[in-house]
């Protein structure tokens, strides 16, 4: 990065450290923080969407839809995360390639499965074998977001399902007495009121999601924990910056980062809880009403 870093083996002390901390690998490390944050920012709403759809399906009057919602939450919650991240993603990837294969190579005569190998025609590879590495990374990242969304969506669905059931029946009955339809009751009364019940459960999920991001590496996305381990491990003279095992320092750094992230989340969630309790027929809402008097 700096011209003085051209020959790191001649450097010492602070200038060595400065060059070390700005090496290309460290820049990748710093970028990976952005990868993790992006994942969180994209996955949270996506998981919420899955959760909302799952909860609505599970509450549906229509039997097949209700079954679908219940089976989704029960199944995904029951499968260990690591199994999901190892097998589901490979199956998803191969599924996409298999479908594309059927469309673009209808004349392909060889079997797709040859023993342990999965072979679609070269045109059906996703992303195509000749596309730049960045596309492979984006594709991997997209698969990661999708998988995280499905897994955390199932948990969110259960939380939202419970929250929807927790809204006092009297509130809904009053709305019905005003002549609102089912849909209107759902949209105007149920959904605005359920968040206060859902928030504790959802905040748990958010915290778990923050800590689950190292699973990204299973999907081939290099996250902060991967880089901390890679950068911290002992380096021989084959590297430009040889050093002993420094993993402890890197992981201590990560500890601070993770604690900061959870602390900021807690602050935001506390404000959100206060805001959502406002005017609610709950103990929290009642306490706020008293305090305001």
């Amino acid at each position: 990065m700096f011209s003085s870093c051209a020959d790191p083996k001649t450097l010492e002390g602070l200038s060595w450290l400065l060059c070390y901390l700005t090496s290309g690998k460290h820049i990748d490390f710093y970028w990976s923080f952005l990868t993790v944050l992006t994942l969180l920012v994209v996955t949270a709403p996506a998981a919420m969407a899955f959760g909302f759809a799952g909860a609505m399906a599970a509450r549906s009057q229509f039997l097949p839809l209700r079954l679908l919602g219940k089976v989704y939450t029960a199944m995904v919650r029951g499968v260990p995360d690591i199994v999901f991240f190892l097998f589901f993603v490979i199956a998803l990837d191969q599924g996409i390639e298999w479908m594309k294969h059927q469309v673009v190579c209808p004349d392909w005569s060889e079997p797709i499965r040859q023993g342990l190998e999965f072979r679609v025609c070269p045109e059906a590879k996703v992303p195509s074998g000749s596309s730049a590495q960045i596309w492979h990374q984006i594709y991997g990242f997209t698969l990661a977001v999708f998988t995280f969304a499905i897994v955390f969506g199932a948990f969110a669905a259960n939380v939202l399902y419970g929250a929807m059931g927790a809204v006092p029946r009297a509130q809904l009955e009053t709305a019905e007495a005003y002549g609102m339809s089912h849909r209107q009751v759902f949209r105007r009364i149920l959904v605005p009121q359920m968040w206060t019940y859902a928030l504790p459960g959802l905040s748990n999920l958010w915290m778990i999601l923050i800590k689950a991001t190292p699973l990204l590496f299973l999907l081939g996305v290099k996250d902060i924990v991967y880089w901390a381990r890679e950068l911290g491990s002992a380096k021989t003279q084959a590297y430009a910056f040889p050093h002993p095992d420094w993993r402890l320092w890197y992981f201590l750094g990560l500890l601070v980062v993770y604690l900061c992230m959870t602390r900021v989340s807690e602050l935001i969630l506390a404000r959100l809880t206060a805001r959502l309790s406002h005017g609610q027929a709950t103990a929290g809402g009642e306490a706020m009403r008293r305090a305001a008097q």
Binding site: V104, K125, V126, P127, S128, W135, Y139
Partner: peptide
């Protein structure tokens, strides 16, 4: 099928050049 193919081609990103190993 056509729509699906278009979507997938768009997803795969980039036009197939010489085969990369």
């Amino acid at each position: 099928k056509l729509l699906l193919a278009t979507a997938l081609v768009a997803l795969s990103g980039g036009i197939a050049a010489a085969q990369t190993v």
